[in-house]
Nucleic acid binder design. Sequence first.
DNA 1: GCAAATGTAG
DNA 2: CTACATTTGC
Lengths: 260, 260
Amino acid sequence: MKIATWNVNSIRTRLEHVADWLEQNPVDVLCVQETKVVDKDFPHSKFEALSYHTYIYGQKSYNGVALLSKKPLEQVSTGFTSILPELDPIWDEQKRVITGVIDSCRILNLYVPNGSEVGCDKYEFKLGWLTVLRKYLQALLLENPNICMCGDFNIALEDRDIHEKADIKNHIMSSDAERQALKNVLELGFADAFRKFTNEAGHYSWWDYRAMAFRRNMGWRIDHHYLTTELYERAVSCVIDKAPRKLEKPSDHAPVIVEF
Amino acid sequence: MKIATWNVNSIRTRLEHVADWLEQNPVDVLCVQETKVVDKDFPHSKFEALSYHTYIYGQKSYNGVALLSKKPLEQVSTGFTSILPELDPIWDEQKRVITGVIDSCRILNLYVPNGSEVGCDKYEFKLGWLTVLRKYLQALLLENPNICMCGDFNIALEDRDIHEKADIKNHIMSSDAERQALKNVLELGFADAFRKFTNEAGHYSWWDYRAMAFRRNMGWRIDHHYLTTELYERAVSCVIDKAPRKLEKPSDHAPVIVEF
DNA sequence: GCAAATGTAG
DNA sequence: CTACATTTGC
């Protein structure tokens, strides 16, 4: 089974890129982030024409996630509160979480808050969101031993995941508190699929639009597949496809594909 | 000699349309309105590559006029105040006037204010601007017996120049005061080149982007060539080229070409 | 309906 | 650097 994750930075603007990529890379499930579209305007038909089922959780302008799946998904749910009803609804005001089950494997598609800059209100929201994610996963794990948690985490967990080694501790996406908050999540029993196969630095999934970052390979590896033990054992590959980032008007992220 | 006028609604957005059109229609002078660009950002090189000289008078976001000429122009000047220095400088805050001489013929390229709606401040400004234009022309005529005054006049002088005959008197671009203000200008000795050759209604140069106006030919003839007597006698054709209005992302105006 | 500017987010 | 919303102008 192949599961891909891709922050497309607007599904409508990137519609041709995403459809073309799916035709070339007929993965079982594509986890999409930053759809930036309300549900009534999601371009279902383009993906239905490629024989994909669509599951969406969108909002106006910002955020928004979707699952595109060859086979129908089961037990689809959106947001934290559908699993944790007692939760403060503020955690679902931004649409960042969608999940479904395929072949007894729960696919969890996340768009973790960016956090803007270390110490600001959005940064605190990001850290809080990750503690909510931990609780949410504890609930999921009770029912689902096999979870593929993927998406745009907006965190580079290790220095080898970042091109720039200077001032990492004060930078958003690599500060100690962010890394620790993510480690606290992973400690529930998740491992990084990409690092099962590749140990070197220099592999990234996101390059800022500014300063010709892609041409200079000044990137960050912030899009991940975190797998529970059995799935991690079964994993046979995890690769970043830089090709779509080279197209005209690309997303700033590249798709990442795991096979298990 | 062929002189064209075309409100391009942003020279940068329409750069390919205008360059392609000039290649297909190598007129001697193209008078451009609504360039919407400051002088330092005008795309000179595109037109120089087509062997055109460029003379510009632009501003940020709004208005802006340009002359594109195969042969160098002489006595180029911009704004009313360069000819009428005693004039209140408010009349040149908006960049709407550029002129130059070729083969003893003065080409005057105008972007007359739109006026928004009858009776408002902008409407009064439009009427005032036309009285200033009259004074400006009186000065020009002292030196130049042959003047081709063209551009976007934002006035349809006769009912046959408008698709819609209802409520014309209260509509911007066809109110009595606007028509009279323009007639007062023309009375200095100008005649409408287009009407030398075509008497029927149904010929327009502008169609609103809204309500599928072009598809329904709900247009207005507001882009004109007004010629002094000798030029009018020499004129051999005056045609509206609707082809560019049919392209993807067109200007709302079509070019109009006079030959004399 | 379009184009441009501004502001926000990333 | 890019995407989207909003405002202004036509």
